[in-house]
């Protein structure tokens, strides 16, 4: 079994503050890996180190087989990324956005054309293809955003709270897209704070104060912590001191 992501004691300090404290984990190829944690637990910092936006302080990590210290250029070519902030250009049309992102990943014109037609059909955006992104509903934008993030067929896609602010039905549709991509062999690394979503993941890690406190399948976690739902697991882990005292 080869790994899409391997991290060993990966650490990031900002001055005296340790944002990410020696985290060790690996993600298998084609896996849907949930990366949970309360706000400020260090999720975003960890992702930024993995995608090459932030240089780690110490430890080791490989993404798609490339070193995060020295081979960030190779990493960038192998991954897709969708951030919390919405990543399409509001003043470009659906078609133009696909064209642009295909272009910066170096896809050929021909390839972009087929991809565009395929995507527009798949997302049922035929009528909206030449509309500005700004005029689309949020749910559509997010689905399109994800599709654009995997347009260049990356090995791994990082999703940073991709479903913020949309209704349950749209979220469900969004997760169908994620399953499809995973079925095609794309590794999914996703952060979320919707605990029901974490049940959709193959494995879940939970970060507390810069450390990974738990890492298992959702079922395994629920057993270990004798909880009914992932929500309970999360509460027990994120506030253990308060519970014990």
């Amino acid at each position: 079994m080869s790994y899409a992501i391997q991290a060993e004691n990966l650490t990031k300090r900002f001055g005296d503050f340790i944002a990410v404290n020696a985290i060790t984990f690996d993600v298998k190829q084609g896996e849907i890996f949930g990366f949970l944690g309360a706000n400020g637990a260090g999720k975003t910092t960890a992702i930024r180190m993995l995608i090459g936006l932030l240089s780690p302080t110490s430890g080791k990590a490989h993404v798609a087989g490339y070193d995060v210290f020295t081979q960030t250029e190779n990493i960038k070519r192998s991954i897709g990324y969708m951030s919390q902030k919405f990543s399409l250009y509001e003043d470009l049309t659906v078609r133009e956005n696909i064209r642009f992102y295909g272009g910066i990943y170096g896809l050929s014109d021909e390839h972009i054309k087929t991809k565009t037609d395929f995507l527009i059909r798949k997302l049922q955006l035929e009528d909206a293809a030449d509309m500005m992104i700004s005029s689309l509903p949020l749910g559509w934008k997010q689905k399109l955003s994800f599709s654009v993030a995997i347009l260049h067929e990356p090995k791994i896609v990082f999703l940073d709270e991709p479903t913020g602010g949309v209704d349950p039905i749209t979220r469900r549709q969004f997760w169908n897209l994620i399953y499809e991509a995973a079925a095609d062999g794309v590794t999914i690394f996703v952060t979320t704070h919707y605990m029901d979503e974490s049940e959709y993941c193959d494995r879940v890690s939970i970060m507390v104060d810069g450390r990974i406190e738990a890492l298992d399948t959702p079922r395994g976690l629920k057993q270990t912590y004798a909880a009914d739902s992932m929500n309970d697991v999360f509460v027990k882990l994120a506030r253990p001191q308060k519970k014990e005292n």
Binding site: Y81, S83, K85, L88, I104
Partner: peptide, 13 residues
């Protein structure tokens, strides 16, 4: 401001 800079920096550009 819009967050697209992050996407650009993660791209091979």
């Amino acid at each position: 401001e819009l967050g697209t800079m992050e996407i650009l920096l993660v791209s091979p550009l």
